[in-house]
Design a protein around this nucleic acid. Structure first.
Lengths: 200, 200
DNA sequence: CCTTCAGGTTAACGACCGCTAACCTCCCTG
DNA sequence: CAGGGAGGTTAGCGGTCGTTAACCTGAAGG
């Protein structure tokens, strides 16, 4: 993992705070003045970095979808390079990657399936295409591990498991588990169990 | 099941259309004029039936939470009345009820965990309390069926399974499964499998 | 030392939105 | 057949929001 050590740019600060605010109160529920205030500048100052409020959301959503897909592709090709690893190992790697994302970037996960319709047509098409590729990649691996699943059932199962893994924002409140590791383990086991049961 | 046969009142029409629009474009993304147009009247005409836009959302969310909880309580007490039925049967009944709701009222399921923060304090507290009771009811049953689960793990598992079951809005697009029954069956099996795997 | 430019500022415009006011029109009822 | 309420209508007010315009400032570069 290539950990960033340099300070975040102003653009990155803005994106991070905008993601948090959008996740908390919805895209239309947040004003540009609030986003500006969250990074210590005033509303119109944001326009030195972004073309508009829409552009911030677009960059966030395209970034998320791209990052998920890129990570999944990397994991898949690493597995192929390893030669002998079974499909089950690849699936475990995909699950782990998705869980890492869901736990580390909860606001983004929230935005990802909540504010897609607020995008311009072209941006929305791009995001949907990235999402579709991501799903299809999962479907392929899942069907290798659970050959009993037909394609439509596998696709439904994948969407449902995403719903399961993306429940992390709801987990924070109340009696949380021991720690991050325990939550990740639990989610991983449940995802596997759900797929296995889907095969029936 | 007590099926309604009389025509829906205007209030009910409005609530249904408002739910659909709120789910599609977010609470702040929908204007009162649009809601009015959806039922064939003009925006201000809505104020003959509701105190304001907020009141519509509040009634929707309180209604959803209450309906879920009421249904779950009914299922639980019916099982107790039956005497000998095992906890597994009760859990299956809870799962079935939640799936019915998630499949029949997708917009409401979407609103349920998306627009809660747009409520007035008092309404939000009420909804959260209903939700908490619903979760705790599930946790109790789940722990009977899977005694290996500690309480925090059971609660996390329940939230995650809700995420799985509530994925129905994402299932519609693309190659849907055979039909409603097939989807319901798949989700049911996956939920059970996820709980079983959570116990580990 | 002057220039330039990145990155801010405040003021203000136009559009939209939730809501109220004022009025109208059936339909039911005494 | 009067009248009154239920359920509409349109006009418009006040506030908010995204965006632009015009201006300022400090640091880097020739």
């Amino acid at each position: 993992m290539a950990t960033r050590t340099d300070a975040p740019t102003r653009r990155e600060q803005i994106l991070k705070e905008a993601a948090r605010l959008f996740a908390e109160r919805g895209f239309h529920g947040v004003g540009v003045d609030e986003i500006g205030a969250a990074v210590g500048i005033s509303g119109p100052g944001l326009y030195r970095h972004f073309a508009g409020k829409d552009a911030m959301l677009a960059e966030l959503l395209v970034g998320i979808s791209g990052q998920l897909l890129t990570g999944a592709k990397r994991r898949l090709s690493e597995a192929e390079a390893d030669g002998g690893v079974g499909a089950g190992v690849v699936l475990d790697s995909l699950i782990e990657g998705h869980i890492d994302f869901a736990l580390d970037d909860r606001p983004l996960i929230t935005l990802h399936d909540r504010e897609l319709d607020r995008l311009r047509d072209s941006d929305r098409k791009m995001v949907r295409q990235l999402q579709r590729q991501y799903v299809e990649l999962w479907v392929g691996v899942v069907r290798q591990v659970y050959p009993g699943l037909g394609e439509p059932a596998a696709r439904s199962a994948v969407h449902s498991v995403f719903g399961l893994l993306n429940s992390t924002p709801h987990l924070g409140r109340a009696g949380a588990l021991a720690g991050r590791g325990a939550v990740a383990e639990l989610l991983h086991r449940m995802a596997r169990g759900a797929f296995a049961a889907a095969e029936g």
